[in-house]
Amino acid sequence: MDDFLSLAVNIAYIGLLISFLSAIVRMVLGPTHADRVLALDLIGFVTISFIATYTISSGQTAFLDIAITLALVAFLGTVAFVKFMKTRLAQTHNQKEDESWKS
């Protein structure tokens, strides 16, 4: 591996680790569920790019299959959470309407 590629991989590692750290901080501190879901999505895509960078730095192409599988699967959790929050919001909205109608 030549020097420029090694430098680029190191810079990519630094950026990805900083991105991991900031996403985890937002996920632990996050006041609402939307913050946590977005942080989970960010962690998924940072993991994909981390595995791709590790494929470049190690030179074994077998790791790229893991990145492809993660990219195929990473959106499922976000979709499930969005469906959950949509149903829960509709329920609370209906309850508020019922209470206002009663009073």
């Binding site: 985890i24 632990v28 946590r36 299959d65 893991i66």
Partner: peptide, 28 residues
Amino acid sequence: LATAILFGAYSFMMCLLWAVMGAVDVAF
């Protein structure tokens, strides 16, 4: 719900960790 989200993040990072350790099929 926050526990479920944090467990998802845990799972993602464990996948990365298995890949770095060299266990390709476990990471899969």
